[in-house]
Design a protein around this nucleic acid. Structure first.
Length: 514
RNA sequence: UCCUCCAUAGCUCAGUUGGUUAGAGCGGUUGACUGUUAAUCAAUAGGUCCCUGGUUCGAGUCCAGGUGGGGGAGCCA
């Protein structure tokens, strides 16, 4: 290889403000290029950020100018130039290029800066991760992971890992992935909770943070087959202490992102209302109250769930009419003739965009009546469905905690309510803006006899739970914990359209590659 | 497993009651333009209309079956 002129220390886009007026070298990839006569605007990304590099034929040699000309999308390169403050730029700085060396000219890059379908992008996930939105989501994901550890470590929690191979289904409800374990069947863990209960009895306050696996053939924007879950478990905590911890925890993470990840939130076009409201207390409502709200029997802050939903439907229908009128108008204008080609194309594009919007709206138009029916006809004692959660959280601007659930729809290990034995001390935390359940938790049943009764009632294999029952035989104490779906939290924070965007390489029904 | 929508150029999509040679934008290529922000403008290449069968003088369009995908239900975080 030829001797390459490079500096020994690397400079990064994230540090540009330190180098204002100085000459530096940046190594990265070209994410976009615009040109004018004698001028190239090269958008460079280096992993730490994005920055426009200006190649002016007046300031560089003909060879360097030709190098810039050759660059194709995603090509790798090194740029040497002066850091110039420029308010027009997203990061506030641009590079006045003096030298530019090509590292590799990329083949035709499949991902353009225009719209793509989700399936196509997931097929190219290894490349899609380079796109600006994905970049922002991955950075926030990394930060939240760090912050979660920080939150618990600061409070004296010990991280304990739960096994991934398990011999039996923890809760006996969901479908598990079966594997061959030295000739015996084993399952990929669907929850680390029971193990966290054991380590909590050893270490007091603990948390697990690892992958979990569910073999449900779910095809929704909120499900993955492999996802990360964080599961704190605290000895001597009751339901109220548990709820307070959930609230403090979520507020801590959301506030941290708001304070430190402004640039990423801007790229993601995240509505900042979430961050303004996160300091308000999270409402705690019982299951019974939630049902009353859902059925429209009880208002929240003067708002009625059923009326709100009906109003949504009216608005959707009105918007569809608006779009249709707009399309008709533009089509008539084109048909009338005398329009220039550029203007015709602009209008055709606009029409396509409107048609797309109508498709999305029509899907809502089909769904909302179903949600209305589901809400109105909700039978007390059933579990809340995804649409029911949306209807309830629609009325709040902070996360909402729903506690005290009918025992038959919850897992066997939840502690029964002494005052009302048909209920258990479970809690679900629902995120606003339609993102739904992000936390499920409970105070655990600490009474040996009652726990055995519940295992029998759920027809679970008693022998598989003997070790778990030991936790109640030897110094049983009140304790509580919760599980937080990491990707659901990221989805909510980043306003991701799909949970598949919140993990580098998503695994779900129908996808194992890349 | 059920309900529902969809499959046309590399990508995102139009394509009318079945009718001659299937269109646009983006991306690619070539050219113009010295401050562009998904730049703009001009030209140009690019097609197994998902598969199989059927109806018809004639199917991208209609019918049946299949395959693949989106959204939702169930289940859940």
């Amino acid at each position: 290889m030829e001797e390459v002129k490079t500096q020994k220390t690397l400079n990064y886009i994230s540090d540009l403000e330190k180098y204002e007026g100085q000459s530096i070298s940046l190594k990265g990839w070209m994410s976009n290029k615009r040109s004018s006569k004698g001028l190239f605007f090269i958008e460079l990304r280096d992993g730490t950020g994005f920055c426009q590099c200006v190649v002016d034929s007046k300031n560089v040699s003909p060879e360097v100018f030709e190098n810039a000309n050759q660059l194709s999308l995603a090509s790798s390169l090194e740029v040497i130039g002066t850091v110039i403050k420029d308010e027009r730029q997203v990061g506030g700085y641009e590079i006045g290029v003096t030298d530019l060396q090509v590292i590799q000219i990329a083949e035709e890059y499949p991902i353009s800066n225009k719209a793509h379908g989700v399936d196509f992008l997931l097929e190219k996930r290894h490349l899609w991760l380079r796109s600006k939105r994905q970049w922002a989501i991955m950075r926030i994901r990394s930060r939240v992971k760090f912050t979660i550890h920080q939150f618990f470590q600061e409070r004296g929690f010990i991280q304990t890992d739960a096994p991934i191979f398990t011999g039996a289904a923890c809760e006996g409800t969901t479908t598990l992935f079966e594997t061959d374990y030295y000739g015996d069947p084993a399952y990929l863990s669907q929850s680390g909770q029971l193990y966290a209960e054991a380590t909590a009895m050893a270490l007091g306050k603990v948390y697990t943070f690892g992958p979990t696996f569910r073999a449900e053939k779910s095809k929704t924007r909120r499900h993955l087959s492999e996802f990360w879950m964080i599961e704190p478990e605290m000895a001597y905590y009751d339901l109220d202490m548990n709820m307070s911890l959930i609230e403090e925890f979520i507020r801590y993470i959301v506030s941290d992102i708001h304070e430190n990840y402004q640039a990423e939130l801007t790229i993601l076009e995240r509505d900042l209302k979430l961050f303004e409201n996160i300091h308000k207390p999270f409402p705690r409502i019982s299951y019974d109250e939630a049902i009353q709200i859902l059925k429209g029997e009880k208002d929240v802050n003067g708002q009625n769930a059923i009326d709100t939903l009906k109003n949504d439907l009216v608005e959707v229908k009105a918007r569809i009419k608006e779009c249709q009128a707009d399309i008709a108008e533009r089509e008539a204008a084109i048909a009338a003739g005398g329009m220039k080609k550029g203007k015709i194309n602009f209008n055709k594009n606009k029409i396509d965009t409107l048609k797309n919007e109508i498709k999305t709206l029509e899907e809502k138009e089909r769904n909302i009546p179903q949600w209305l029916e589901s809400a109105k006809n909700f039978v007390h004692g059933n579990d809340l469905g995804g649409s029911d959660e949306t209807v309830i959280t629609r009325l709040f601007d902070t996360p909402v905690m729903v506690y005290n659930w009918p025992k038959d729809i919850k897992a066997f290990y939840m502690k029964r309510d002494e005052e009302n034995p048909d209920y258990v001390k479970g809690v679900d935390c629902l995120a606003p803006e339609g993102f739904g359940e992000i936390v499920g938790g409970a105070e655990r049943e600490d009474n040996l006899e009652l726990l055995i009764e519940r295992i029998k009632h759920h027809e679970l294999p008693m022998e598989a739970f003997e070790w778990y029952l030991d936790l109640r035989r030897f110094g049983s104490v009140p304790h509580a914990g919760f599980g937080l779906g990491f990707e659901r939290l990221i989805m909510w924070l980043t306003n991701a359209a799909h949970i598949r965007e919140t993990i580098p390489f998503p695994r779900y029904y129908g996808r194992l590659f890349p």
